[in-house]
Amino acid sequence: MSDLSDLYQQVILDHYKRPRNFRRLDEANRKAEGHNPLCGDEITVYLHLDGDVIKDISFEGAGCAISKASASMMTAALKGRTRGEAETLFEKFHEMVTGRRDGTADPAGLGKLEVFCGVSEFPVRVKCASLAWHTLRAALEGSGERVSTE
């Protein structure tokens, strides 16, 4: 059993208490809603896509520390990135939190998102960490459907 501080790292607690880009985005041209029925987390991700580039990104919603901090750090990491880069980052992030990192994804690219590596020791919390990312993917695909982690 890993230590609790691996999960609740200071950076994560900071993003939970003071989430970045936590607002409605008026100039958004894509948005998607995500929902984790297990714990009642609700999130809306707003995107301003300029061609292939994420010009701006924000989120709103209520959730646990892991889901809110994950959403906050995701928005901070993706501003100015391309759609392809976002997809690659999601892939790496997902492999990290599910503990399936096997070298095919380069962990180096995750940067600050590395603080979520402790999540892999808490399997029931993986959905919390990945809710924002699943919602982002729905927004990018423009499917407009409500995303559920169930």
Binding site: M1, L4, C39, A65, R125, C128
Partner: peptide, 14 residues
């Protein structure tokens, strides 16, 4: 206050 039930559950489980 300010703490989601899911976080409470994880820390108590510990």
């Amino acid at each position: 206050d300010g703490i989601h039930a899911h976080d409470t559950g994880t820390i108590l489980d510990h």
